[in-house]
Every structure is written in structure tokens, then in C-alpha cells.
Write a protein that binds this DNA or RNA. Sequence first.
DNA 1: GTAGGTGCAAAGTATTTGCATATAT
DNA 2: ATATATGCAAATACTTTGCACCTAC
Lengths: 139, 139
Amino acid sequence: MCGGRSCYPAEMSAPRSTKQRDVIARVLDVAEGPLAVPDILTRTQAQVPGVGLATVYRTLKLLSDQGSIHPVTLDGETLYEASGRGHHHHFSCTACGRVFTLHACPVSIPAGTVYPGGFVVEAHEVTLYGRCPDCAARA
Amino acid sequence: MCGGRSCYPAEMSAPRSTKQRDVIARVLDVAEGPLAVPDILTRTQAQVPGVGLATVYRTLKLLSDQGSIHPVTLDGETLYEASGRGHHHHFSCTACGRVFTLHACPVSIPAGTVYPGGFVVEAHEVTLYGRCPDCAARA
DNA sequence: GTAGGTGCAAAGTATTTGCATATAT
DNA sequence: ATATATGCAAATACTTTGCACCTAC
């Protein structure tokens, strides 16, 4: 129907699979939480020595457009994480600065809920701040 | 006790009161929600024609250090809002892009609550996404 | 073989800083 | 009078883009 091996909209071809892309995608897949760009670059370079920063940015944009990852902004820092991990939120440790993924959700707001003033809620995002297990134990 | 008109730590003097600072502080005080820097500049220029962008940034930093305002990062954009408005959250309209302050809080997490995994929660931040009253009415 | 991808370096944004002038105290 | 603040322009930091070479298909 579309001529190629998989169907992409007319005049558009499927992105090619390259070592750089595969590694960057996997780095995010196995990450313990959302990662910053320099961190992604470092982890990628461990497996693909010469990768350039531009490729990381280009790939992050590509993966974001595809929907397989998405950016999270936390305290002014832009982090990226793999999508499709289900509904979750983030915990930012005020002691060590690391960000963790939490699958517990402290909020229950069905889509369509109307807030005082007439705000129709479609989605929510929660960030918790405090001490991560390591830092809490160390305190 | 400290020699000056107000007490500041030794070797530090009180910031001076200037037209620029007063106006920038007031702009944030009367704002309907957190504002982006270009927006702050525009609103300030309406009252102090020649203000420079650098002064806006310097003043935002000063006010932040003083604690009278604080930055909020929302979808990669850095916004500033006056502090001391009590516990509140933000609503970001997915249609018009405006950000509003909401005083309703959908979360109840007493400080010290421990989340699964051992995360000790000290604070939380919530952002709701959806249609603002204007856009909901227009839909 | 060819379209698409990569690395490098140059170009854009956003924010910060240096310096001469202006201003609050 | 003098230290501090301002405005402009240069400097920084982060991200995007142009281009010649390389690689997946």
C-alpha cells in the first residue's frame, strides 16, 4: 500500500536505524529516571566514542517527535525520559539533586474535572521534593 | 545596633530603592499569574520607558535572592511570580498557553510523609493542564 | 547508488557580565 | 561625595543549523 517496508505518510520516509540512535534510545530506556543532556551524552559516548552533541540533540528531537521519549523540565533543567512507563511522577532530592520516577500518584483528578473558576482539567503533573532513600538514611 | 537604617549582615548594604526595581516588583505583584521575562520587560517599559533587559534580569535575581519572588519553570519556560501568596499551584491552558494561579490544592501530603521506596516528602508542586475558562467557553 | 545521518564548526537564543555614566542616600 | 544601579555592548551558555563526508537501505 505504501511501497516501503512500513507505512509512513506520503513524501516521508522511515528514519534509519543507526548505532547512535539505537544507543541514545537505549540509554533513556534503561535510565533510572529522566536524564539531562550532558548526562545522556556521557552515557552514549561510553558506547559510541565519537558521538557529537548535535547528534544527541537531533536524536532527542526525533524521538520526542515520534513520541517515544519526552522532555521534563524540573527547576529550570530540561531532562528527557522514555515514554510509555505509565502514569508516574517525579521526586527531586533536595540533598543530592537526583531525580527519581515514582509510580505512586497522590492525585486523583478524572479528566474533565472542573476546578473553581471554570478550569477544565485534562492532565496533571506532580513533583515531590524531599530526601531520597539514600539521603534520608545518611541524615 | 547596626548603624544603618535597616539591619543587613556586616559588609553588606541594603539595596537601594530605584524606580526600575519598584516598578518590576509591582509588575509581579499585580500580575494575574507567573510572567515570562519578555512579558515583564514589556510591562515595565510601559512605566519606565528606557529600562534595559539586563536590569530586568538583575532585578529578578535580586528579588529572588531576597525571597520576594521566585522562578517557576513550566514546559521549559522560566516564569517569575511574587512569593507569599500562600500555597497554590498552576494551571496551564493547552489552548491559549496562558498560565494561571490556582488556590485549590488537589494534594494532601503532610511534610514528612514517606513514599513507597523510602522517599521522604517535604514539599510538592502540581501543574494542571487543560482549558482555561475563556477557552472552554469558546470551544 | 542515493537519500538520509553524522561530526564539526558557525549561527541563533537566552542570560550574565564589564564598564562608563547616572542616581540614591 | 560616594557607593550602588543602570544601559549598552560584549561575553557565556545552551541549542540549532549548514555543510562536506559517511552509511543504511
